[in-house]
């Protein structure tokens, strides 16, 4: 199986280049991460992130043939040759497939991604009905891999000001939590033409999300909530 992998070490390379790699035997059920690890044994200067290898942690997001995926949950058998592996688009490259995620995480921090509950704390748990709790399904599972945000054309156009699907999904996760009391502040944070309203429903985020989440729907819900509260 033929691969073409993005290589760039600013320390030694003037420009990025694509390097060819060849995988002799592909066993059934082999994942892209297995292939990358194999290449790393051949050429130890190849650099990429990885941790759990099971799709829980979100460390190994890369772009494969134009689509953002997690390397550890992508079967080699579904990929078209030559497999082009490049870093997540739109973020500065530190080296090879490793991008600088600071911009992404600062957008995550910008939505105040934590529960704010101003009512006095009970000695036991705050009650939440199974229905209210079910509202959090589809948003708290996000693993912050940045596949969605970096695939979003609107975010590509306004990476500094549009918060992007991942951060907005988290905004919705807390807006929709029955225990959270900061709805108004959160909506205020998202006001203005850029932070929320650059979404044009292209739905790349939904198509690439490795956890099958739906940020587009969450963005729509935030807009409706905002509409309701501003009327």
């Amino acid at each position: 199986m033929r691969f073409s992998i993005y290589r760039y070490n600013p320390e030694t390379d003037a420009e990025p280049r694509m390097q060819r790699f060849e995988l002799e035997s592909v066993s059934r059920g082999m994942m892209l991460l297995d292939a990358l690890l194999r290449f790393k044994e051949q050429d130890e200067s190849l650099v990429f992130r990885h941790a759990c290898g099971e799709g829980h942690c979100g460390a190994d997001g890369v772009n494969v043939n134009g689509v953002n995926v997690l390397a550890c949950t992508t079967r080699l058998s579904i990929l078209r040759e030559p497999v082009q592996v490049t870093p997540l688009p739109g973020l500065p490259v530190i080296r090879d497939l490793v991008v600088d995620m600071e911009a992404f995480f600062s957008q995550y921090r910008a939505v105040r991604p934590y529960l704010i509950a101003d009512d006095p704390e009970p000695e036991v748990e705050r009650r939440q009905s199974p229905e209210q709790r079910a509202g959090l399904d589809g948003s708290f599972e996000c693993i912050l891999c940045a596949c969605c945000t970096t695939q979003c054309p609107s975010w590509q156009n306004n990476p500094e000001r549009y918060l992007g699907p991942a951060a907005l999904l988290q905004a919705w996760r807390f807006l929709n939590d029955s225990r959270d009391t900061a709805t108004e502040e959160r909506l205020n944070d998202l006001a203005g033409p850029y932070a929320l309203f650059r979404c044009r429903t292209v739905m790349n985020c939904v198509n690439v999300c490795p956890k099958d989440l739906n940020p587009t729907e969450a963005i729509g819900r935030i807009r409706r909530l905002m509409l309701k509260s501003s009327l």
Binding site: L115, A117, E121, E125, R127, F174, D180
Partner: peptide, 20 residues
């Protein structure tokens, strides 16, 4: 410790009466 986690926002699954 579990109640603290709940207060911090951990989305525990719930029983019909709303408890963890």
């Amino acid at each position: 410790v579990v109640y603290e986690l709940e207060h911090m926002g951990v989305p525990f699954s719930r029983l019909p009466d709303g408890r963890i």
